[in-house]
Amino acid sequence: MLSFIVRRLLIAIPTLLAIITVCFFLMRLAPGGPFDAEAPVPPEILANMRAAYNLDKPLIQQYGDYLLNLAKGDFGPSFKYKDFTVTELIGQGFPVSAQNGLAAIILAIIVGVPLGILASLKQNTATDYSVMGFAMTGIVVPSFVMAPILILIFAIFLKGTPFQLPAGTWEGGAFKHRILPVFCLSLVYIAYLARITRASMIEALRQNYVRTARAKGLPFRTVVVRHALKTALVPVVTFLGPGIAFLLTGSMVVETIFGLPGVGRYFVQGALNRDYTLVMGVTILSASLIITMNIVVDVLYGLLDPRVKYE
């Protein structure tokens, strides 16, 4: 298994390199530069700025420098937040995003998976239909609709009641300030997890070995938990892998709406301001997380199903 992980990591390197390369040259070949938006500056100052940001050297050398610095964990200076390096910005934003993301994932798993199991056991009953209706709502109503509506309800309509929740402020991450954003983040995942779990549980409950387990006289709960659930979790894990990666890197929408100082909002700001190094930094971070999570998922397959061979 160890050699499997090592091999997968080795394959991941060229993948990541390809992403970095495409990203880098796209940025540099694009019409317009990061300083376009600012008031016209004298050419000599512009030249100085370009030199400071290493933009005056040949493209290939810039690329080489960027890779070298990246290997040292240095994403370069931010074009917009002049006093910060991208590494610093990500260093500030990532903990915020990751904490909220983690809370959202845990919430999604402890709500979504049981809901899916419940629906599968009560297939085609009112319980099933309401769970699936809820799931459909979670999938169809995007966070940029859900978040303003939740703010409308909890921060505006319920103002002055004990149910009022703050929105649009962070306050260093006080619990109360995290409730709405974390709920918003997890809603889609609850919905997808419920749907996926339901479908795969129905499939698993149909298997012959579940019938065997029932014929052994085991209580139904044991049959479900011990015999059906494990195989049913394979699609759940497949979905969660990249899902976790996305959640940890932060949601652009939720962080923007709730004003959270996370990676997602930095990315949006970076994109709006043409802050190339920042945008690249976040993209690379996200890509590496996705790749890592995919490897984790592949390892988990083997733990869930002994028939899977690590090749």
């Binding site: 012959n208 070995y209 019938r211 065997t212 014929a215 052994k216 006289g217 195989t231 869930l304």
Partner: peptide, 25 residues
């Protein structure tokens, strides 16, 4: 009641042994 009989006083053998055993146990 069924569970006190099934597997205990009355056992069952199924047709397809390839799919009738739980693969992950």
């Amino acid at each position: 009641t069924l569970n006190s009989v099934r597997g205990n006083r009355m056992g069952m053998i199924f047709q397809d042994p390839m799919t009738s055993l739980t693969p992950h146990m």
